[in-house]
Structure formats: structure tokens, C-alpha cells
Computed example of a mutant assay.
Amino acid sequence: MTIHRAVVARVQPLTATMTRVTLHGEGLVGFESTGVGDEYVRLFFPHGPDRSDLSLPVTTEKGWETPEGRPVAPMRTYTVRAVRPESREIDVDFVLHDHGVASTWVAGAQPGDALGVNDPTGLYSPPDDLAWQVLIADQTGLPAVARLLENTPDGVATRVVVELPGPEAVQSLPGTKVTWTYGGNGHEASRLAELVSAAIPPGTDLTGGYIWVAGETNALRTVRRYLRKELGLPATRFKVVGYWIPDADSWNERYEALPDAVRAELVALWDNPVGDEEDLTIRYEARLSDLGL
């Protein structure tokens, strides 16, 4: 894995609630897209007021670590909206809100600012017999939905449902009719679980299908259980991706405050897996719910 130093080339407002930042530069030499529509990167932000001063970690066999004596760079995960290798450019779309490292940074972003970017990872993985798909997301999943639509082969029927905070967040999407709903997104309770069950009700013929859902992590616990336990879908037929947690700093503090034995129990679930990853994730999320997390 490589962590690249990238520089802001352009900043483009998309809607009242989302801004696109185009990154470029010699530091992106060797950045290779997976070609998967929902691929994501970790962005490393400046740690102080100098927007060009990055304390980039160095890669190790286990991931990365901050060099001794340097501050830890704030890090957040974002979807890659587009990659143009010929011009060494990548686009990243940022949801705008009134708090947080990334939103604060993008509010003042301008050409010449610097970010660290690691190599991308993609999650969308439809089966070979794909004939139709359902893509459902809140606003944070909108960039991935747009790119997935651009990459969808001709002949694959696609239904898209997106939950936005309001009409001001609507974007033009390629190739298919979109059902826009309003709510959730940190302003109201998420309706993602309701939207999924309405789009794929019990009794749906799932032959040739694939379901991809992304958005608020806690709301997606119900979605995962529904797809796996109620509909009985194998892991190859769906992907549920948690993008954000409401009040994430508080959540992390509460997790770290758990007794050592409880945190060890949660880690042990992953160290000694029983069943496939989706079943394991359901057990892990159920335990978190029991703990009030």
C-alpha cells in the first residue's frame, strides 16, 4: 500500500450540500484505480493551520504508522467519484455539514491545498449472472451510486433509491430513473431499512439479482439482518456498507470506555470466525447493540 501526496486542482460546488474536490499532482503517480464503482480511499488531512503541511504516515507490513516525533494526521474515508489516470486526477465529493475534520477542511479548500491519499479498495462485487440490481443509499452513498451507474453494463436493469436531506441535494444521475426520498442524513431518523424492504419485499424472485446499500452504519444493521436472515440471501448477492456513524467521536469514546474484557470479547469474534463474514458481522453488530453502541 502506498500513501500518496495529492494537491487540490479544483473545487466545484455540486449542490447546496455537496462539493467536489479534484486532486492531482506528481504524488499520484502509481495511484491505480480498482475500477470498482464504490472504491474508497482514506484521506489524510493537515494537522494544523498550514494547509500544505501534511504529516503523512509511512506504510508498514501491518498498515501504516506515524513517524516518530510527527503529529498524527486526521484521517477520514471517502468514495472516489472519478479517476482520470491520463491527467493524474481523482475526484472526491464531500458532504457539507457544520462540524468535523473533513467538512471544515473542504469549506476552505482551494487549489494548492494538500491531502494524503492511500490506494483504493472496492466493495461492489455482483455475481456473474447479474441481470438486475437495486442500489439504495443516503447522501453519503450518492457519489458511489453515480459511478456504479456509469459502470453498469447495458442490459442490467437497475433500480435506484436515494435518501437525501431535501430537494436541494438532488443531483443528475446517469442512465436510470431515480426515486428520491427526503429525511435521514443526520437530520431525522434514517429510513434506509424501510426503503430496502419496500424495494425488495419478501417473496421477490432474487434470481440474477444483486443489492447494494450504503449509508448510516447503525441504520444498516437492520438492513443486513433483513437481507441475510429474512430474505436468506447469500453473501454473494448483496453488499451493505456503513459510511458514517452519528456523533462518531462520542461513539468511539464510549467504545474505548468499555471494560477490557468486553473489548477483548468483541475482537475475539473476528479472530475466531464462525460462518461467513455477513453472519459474523450480524453477531458483532448485535453485541454492539446490546452494549448500547
Rank of each mutant, 00 (worst) to 15 (best):
V101L: 04
S125W: 09
P126V: 13
H97I: 11
V101E: 01
L96R: 12
T2D: 07
E265D: 15
D129Q: 08
N151E: 14
E265H: 15
A107T: 15
P67E: 08
L23M: 01
T222R: 12
D276M: 08
S55W: 02
A268Q: 09
F45K: 01
L149V: 01
R224Q: 11
N151C: 08
L23F: 12
T222G: 08
T2L: 05
D93H: 01
V145K: 00
F238L: 11
V101W: 00
S87C: 06
H99Q: 13
L135K: 08
F238M: 15
G186Q: 03
A286E: 13
Y182G: 01
G175K: 05
A16D: 04
E61P: 05
A102E: 01
T121N: 13
K62R: 15
V241A: 15
Q12L: 14
F238H: 15
E216S: 02
L231K: 05
P202I: 08
A268K: 15
G100Y: 10
V262P: 03
D205F: 00
A107E: 13
G69K: 03
V160E: 02
L28R: 02
R20N: 02
E230T: 13
T19P: 02
A286V: 07
T17M: 11
H24E: 12
E194A: 14
V240S: 11
P49M: 10
D91I: 13
V8Q: 06
R70L: 12
E65G: 03
V267W: 03
A214T: 00
S87R: 14
D276A: 11
T207A: 05
L173M: 01
S289Y: 06
Y226S: 07
T140L: 13
V106Y: 05
L14G: 07
A109K: 03
N272H: 15
V160A: 01
I245N: 07
V41M: 06
A214M: 02
G27C: 00
V267T: 12
H187D: 11
L206W: 07
E168W: 09
P111R: 09
G37P: 12
V36K: 02
Q110N: 05
W64F: 11
V162T: 06
E285A: 10
A114V: 08
P234H: 00
T19W: 10
E26K: 12
V274S: 14
A16V: 03
Q171G: 06
